[in-house]
Simulated scan of single mutants.
Amino acid sequence: MADTFAHTLTPEQRATLALWAVPGLGPKTLEALRAFAGGHLESLAARPVREWLAQAPMSPQVRKRLAMVTELGLVADRVLERCEASGMELAFAGGQAFPERLAGVPDAPPLLFYKGHVGPPRRRVAMVGSRHPDQGFLPFARTFARQVAEGGVGVVSGAAMGVDRACHWGAMDAGGETWAFLGSALDELDEPQARMLPSFLERGGVYFSELPPGVRASRSTFPRRNRLIAGASDAVLVLRAGVKSGALYTAEAGQAMGRPVLALPGDVRNEAAAGCNAWIRSGLARACLSVDEVWENVGARPVLAVPPGAGEPWRALSTEARGTYRVLDRVPRTFEEVLAGSQLSPATLTGALVELELSGLVIQHPGKLYERI
């Protein structure tokens, strides 16, 4: 757990973690406390809480909860123990694992809890929709998400039943990247989310939550979760939503952040699509009629590979390059991981990877990470 062990955290991160674990203490209060502490929360952690609590800027409810704490360091230790026990890692704002787009959003959390491997930067789209869409829509949503992911675009959603889950599965069908932001702590998953987690981890997905261990989902946690889905994405696409669908909260968050908001139009007689149609009619969302429009609005320029076994680019490849291509997928792999699966020598594998890059079938990310296009 690269970012979670106590000895890897700075004093400032430990203080941030401890305060973030206090129920009711949000980003604005945290920043007010940082200013109160002269710009460094670690100065509060260096003193007993009772010495500074009365003067600190916070609501009476938060002050009452903090009054039960003797030292912030003890709170940080307890949270870290629970993270380690349940396999969670921590991503602090500005760190490599923290979503880059989210870091610049007002009211962004100072840290996230996560499970999975956070890959290199890429374009991402939030794909959300109703928990109970009209009959027959979920296979379409899954196929649409797969096609989006085939262009190298990451799919972000909320792992809720219905459209959200269909989009996650569609991205995984393509071997693409998918992120799920949850409305509960990662040790309080509902049963379907828990069942889906192994597939997520195995196929390169990530579960995120801003909530510390032990916090269950509630009516108040889902709207705040929606701002994270929008904030981590370059655009928001609502595939199916009635006029009162919670998916529209994600669209509202995206609009407030200046993200392009798209909506899939539906039959005017279909109440399950009434929310999407209303947003399009009012000009709040752009009508999305194709996968190409998703790529365009997130700023992606996908280079789709010729399917193996067809076309001149594939036929021109060496046997070694073809074999290497089959080892790779849409989750970036290190040179060593590809080497272990290829049964080639390091020198031969290097040549095969160069051949694939020149053919436009593979991209190399910083750090010698290789990914199928």
Rank of each mutant, 00 (worst) to 15 (best):
T16I: 10
A174I: 10
N226C: 11
A171N: 03
P307K: 11
R165V: 13
A217M: 12
A273P: 09
R195P: 13
S157A: 03
E336M: 11
D173A: 08
L356K: 01
L228V: 07
D107L: 10
E12H: 07
A46C: 05
W314M: 03
L361I: 04
E12R: 13
L353I: 00
W295G: 13
L189V: 12
F98E: 03
E296S: 15
G204F: 03
S218Q: 12
E371R: 09
G311F: 04
L356N: 01
S359L: 13
P48K: 13
T348K: 04
F335V: 01
D77F: 06
P120V: 00
A274C: 11
A91Q: 01
G95D: 11
D77R: 13
A45E: 06
G94D: 03
A18M: 09
Y325T: 09
M68E: 14
P133A: 12
S209A: 05
L17N: 01
L239F: 05
W52R: 08
G152H: 06
F36Q: 09
L112A: 02
A235Q: 02
A321V: 00
F181K: 06
R123H: 13
L102P: 05
H132C: 12
P313W: 14
R286V: 13
D234K: 02
A91C: 00
G323T: 00
T324D: 05
S290W: 08
K64R: 12
P213K: 04
V236N: 01
E51R: 15
L289N: 13
A305T: 13
P223C: 02
R286Y: 07
R123F: 09
I363Y: 14
A316N: 15
A76T: 01
G351V: 00
A108F: 05
V268R: 08
L239I: 02
G283N: 10
Q255I: 12
A340H: 05
G258I: 03
A166D: 02
S43A: 15
G341I: 02
G170S: 08
T334N: 05
G158A: 01
A67G: 02
L264P: 08
G38R: 11
L53R: 07
S130T: 15
Q13V: 09
P57G: 04
W169E: 14
A145F: 02
E100G: 08
V215Y: 11
L328V: 11
L17R: 02
R259H: 04
R47F: 07
V294F: 08
V294P: 08
G242I: 04
G254M: 12
L197G: 10
P27S: 08
S342V: 00
I373V: 10
A278V: 12
V75G: 00
M257R: 12
G129E: 01
Y114I: 13
R78S: 14
P27F: 04
V362G: 11
Q13N: 09
R322T: 00
A46E: 06
W169Y: 14
A263M: 02
D187P: 14
